[in-house]
């Protein structure tokens, strides 16, 4: 009897502790649905422009002659250029690396880690005796731009493998990072992009977190450079005067994993342009 009680207790407590990402995602969708009742779900892929019609017009005008076009062309060339051993990026990826960005990040059960597209690019390089590229800007943004371009219109498909406690824990840590307040200004990601999404901070509208991972890499008009999603995370932490986690650090990969799971089903539209 005693062991039976213990058994029941364990079941109940484990189900309480068992995080439910799908429930989280539904809650986030419901939340934004309440603030932006007119906004179709698919439009969240446009980021802040989905809720800022003035900025959207100038964004659409810029997209006619996109400033990331050179990076994209160069990225295609870099992607197809063989390494010294004759192998190519295409040899490292499913479907030769075309139209696959929606499947990243994913949980690698063997390596017990989150594989982002950027980290997979560097893993491919190392496997072929090429040096790893810096993660925040530069050459990697061009290769990412090309891979994102071939994946346009693909729906984000982030999977947390069933029965993998480690994968779930990585997701949970990403979620905790998203909601944890930090830095001198004491903001969490959610302070701005959930609690105050759609409001003005000075003359800028705060974007909803839903859809934050759809449009990378992005050409930033303020820097005149292509940057990765993780570089944007780093800029955010700098703005709130918090310690800056490095691009592709476990913390930022976990954050990407969480955000990407929330964005499941949204269409990829990178590379993109942002203010």
């Amino acid at each position: 009897m005693k062991s039976f009680c213990l058994f029941i207790y364990l079941i109940i407590s484990s189900s309480l502790a068992w995080a439910d990402p799908e429930q989280d995602r539904k809650q986030i969708l419901d939340f934004y649905q309440q603030i932006f009742p007119q906004l179709p779900l698919a439009d969240y892929a446009q980021g802040v422009y989905a809720i800022d019609s003035d900025a959207k017009k100038s964004w659409q005008a810029i997209e006619e002659f996109p400033p990331y076009e050179f990076a994209l062309e160069e990225g295609k060339e870099l992607f197809n250029r063989p390494f010294n051993n004759g192998a190519r990026y295409a040899d490292c990826f499913p479907n030769k690396g075309i139209a696959i960005a929606q499947n990243y990040p994913y949980w690698d059960e063997q390596k017990q880690s989150i594989i982002t597209l950027a980290s997979a690019i560097n893993a491919c390089r190392l496997q072929n005796q090429a040096p790893a590229l810096p993660y925040a800007q530069g050459e990697i943004t061009k290769i990412l731009a090309y891979m994102a371009f071939t994946s346009r219109g693909q729906l984000i498909n982030t999977i947390i493998p069933e029965h993998s406690q480690q994968a779930l824990s990585a997701y949970e840590q990403g979620k905790a990072y998203f909601y944890r307040r930090r830095g001198q200004l004491n903001f969490s990601c959610a302070s701005c992009h959930v609690d105050n999404a759609g409001k003005f901070i000075r003359s800028e509208i705060l974007s909803p977190a839903l859809g934050h991972t759809t449009h990378w890499p992005a050409y930033r008009l303020n820097t005149g450079e292509m940057g990765t999603l993780h570089r944007r995370f780093m800029d955010c932490n700098k703005l709130i005067r918090a310690p800056i986690d490095a691009a592709q650090s476990p913390a930022l990969r976990q954050l990407e994993f969480f955000l990407s799971y929330m964005a499941n089903g949204l269409a990829l539209n990178g590379p993109s342009t942002r203010k």
Partner: peptide, 16 residues
């Protein structure tokens, strides 16, 4: 403070 509050004659205030 203008990032979030309308104040006096401050330009482009936020509304948080």
């Amino acid at each position: 403070c203008l990032a979030c509050h309308v104040i006096d004659d401050g330009e482009a205030p936020g509304n948080i």
